[in-house]
Design a protein around this nucleic acid. Structure first.
Lengths: 342, 342
DNA sequence: TAAAATTGTGTAATCGATTACACGAAAGTA
DNA sequence: TACTTTCGTGTAATCGATTACACAATTTTA
């Protein structure tokens, strides 16, 4: 059992004080070169390790940052976290993970827990935007903990965010379907109180407008991001008087469900019906009938969030920089929508 | 800006000492009921929050646990982490994520960093098993930090692990292929210095033996867990004098690569060639030609690891319990290998 | 009624590191 | 020689909470 070695132990051994040891180890220029070398050598010999908790208490900085996501086992969020971790690793920050499971109560708990644990910053993708109970967010801001939203963000003054241009993503996807000759294009949306779904929808609508295609309310269906939900929703669409000939889904999973259902009904994809998803989940590429999807560059999003945090954390508390980074979405055209080029 | 409230502030306001405040807040039975209530009420009114860093320094426990994985953006590891987080959440532990990117140097760094950060435990899936430089592991054990391996483990005395029965997984997969009528069964393996790959291989071999099928060295190929590697490896197999009619791959990704290559060569699956993968990645189920795979119940594995940790952390330091939990693998039979039942 | 036990709080050390301030010794300046 | 700097290190407070020990006040016991 190796007993823990402190600077006091080193001090005692060398007949000097802990203050000198501390200064020597921190390369304080006031320390004599000979003393510094001696201390450093002795510290190494005694296998000294700085107690990070003591340092954290003294400095008020824990060198931990918190990340809050709805769930970690989705490729998108896992990739963002990967990006954050990789960017922050060289700076000595550790990444603490929290999941909300889409529960606002849980989100608030997580925010409080992270603030209480004195993390040096919080990066999150919000679960909901209900403005009723913002006290958890206010608490974060009052404590001056840098907060950065990625992907799903909230409108809060002074808070930075890293998102993609969802409007453009929706526009690109829809324009592509129009270019493929589709004229009755349906849309699976999500909770439109979240910007990401609202903007994808608006991009979809604008693309229709710009190309002289009438927008039809009944072509928009609010769907969960799940395979079964996609099946049910496409079912509804096919019962319409004029069933659509294409679908732009805000979720890859719902798009997959739609495709499965269409196949069961022997509707040929992409000839009779084109499908575009969103997120570029790995499986969209792997399918035999690969699925066209909008990529959100999650790795880059994570790295960018980390960089925004690093910029923010160095500044004095008084200066608040609000940075809104918007990444460009990229349409990956695959078999589910490419009538011609594939 | 809310200044931070400490127990000293509360004490001052009430004209008592910080010690009394601390005791009142901790429900120490020696405190008068009236005092306790007053303190608790005042603490709430002043918006007091316990400083976790001070507590951590005093107690030596950070309430953080570290998780080390090769990478986080694979469904398997992300699911394990999800399980760990969910199980530990009610106990107030936070989960710190580290990635090794399959680098032993990085693995050692992560171990040191976590120990220095005074995590209360470490759960990990090892990256390599080279015994040359075990100092990082010895450091963990010397500091009495509970260590738990999941999935990929190392043989270290006194260290618990949660794995699946990979031998049985390999056996089940191979037996299934035999039952489907395959007689020339190839195997994609990984780095056999890792138990998981060794045992899957041994299960494969035993199944052949038990069913009177000759084991052929040239049917075993060491392949990376990647789509391209799978393509290349199946290419090699097809050049053999007696090409195989089935494949048990230790990796779903390699299995997918193999399937893509076989299709390009117009080899019909499962009629002419059956394929079984390992890990039950989401895409195996989503494919039109769904892929048979061995499930490792990662969520359960994570939860179980967390439970083993919780058992361990309560015990006194002197008693070391070594617990080896082995979960049962489950074969999910799908189109890539089911000649009959599908 | 005196001694003993109990109750409730205060005092002060502790966890380990950092750092403002003080101060003696050495060096530089006039 | 006397005075000012500079250098290097020690002293002690600090970060915020916990807790062994001490002790006065109160209650119980004989």
């Amino acid at each position: 059992m190796s007993e823990k070695v402190t600077i006091y132990d080193i001090a005692e051994k060398l007949n000097i004080t802990a203050a000198t040891v501390s200064r020597a180890l921190n390369n304080n220029p006031k320390i004599k070169e000979a003393t510094r070398e001696l201390v450093i050598k002795t510290a190494a010999a005694m296998n000294y390790k700085q107690n990070k908790l003591a340092l954290a208490l003294k400095s008020g900085r824990s060198n931990n940052i918190g990340v809050i996501v709805p769930r970690i086992d989705s490729n998108f969020f896992a990739s963002v976290i990967r990006g954050i971790e990789e960017e922050l690793y060289p700076h000595g920050y550790q990444v603490i993970i929290c999941q909300t499971h889409e529960s606002i109560k849980r989100e608030n708990e997580n925010l409080h827990t992270l603030v209480d644990a004195q993390v040096d910053g919080i990066m999150m993708s919000v679960t909901g935007v209900s403005n009723e109970n913002d006290s958890a967010f206010r608490n974060v801001l009052e404590k001056n903990v840098p907060l950065i939203f990625f992907d799903r963000s909230k409108h809060i003054d002074g808070v930075s965010s890293v998102t993609i241009n969802d409007f453009k993503g929706g526009y690109l996807a829809t324009k592509h379907l129009i270019d493929e000759g589709c004229r009755n294009i349906a849309h699976f949306s999500g909770d439109q109180s979240l910007d990401i779904f609202k903007n994808r929808f608006l991009g979809y609508k604008q693309a229709l407008l710009d190309n002289g295609i009438e927008f039809k309310e009944e072509y928009v269906i609010y769907t969960k991001s799940a395979v079964d939900a996609g099946k049910e929703s496409v079912d509804k669409l096919l019962q319409l008087e004029t069933p659509p000939d294409a679908l732009f889904s805000s979720s890859d999973f719902a798009a997959l469900g739609a495709i499965q259902e269409l196949k069961e009904r022997n509707i040929s994809i992409p000839n009779e019906f084109c499908v575009v998803g969103f997120s570029n989940e790995p499986f969209t590429k792997f399918m035999e009938l690969s699925i066209t999807s909008v990529d959100q560059s999650p790795l880059e999003m994570g790295k960018m969030s980390a960089r925004v945090f690093l910029e923010q954390v160095d500044k004095t508390d008084t200066i608040k920089i609000e940075k809104k980074v918007v990444l460009a979405p990229e349409l990956h055209i695959r078999k589910s929508s490419a009538k011609t080029n594939f």
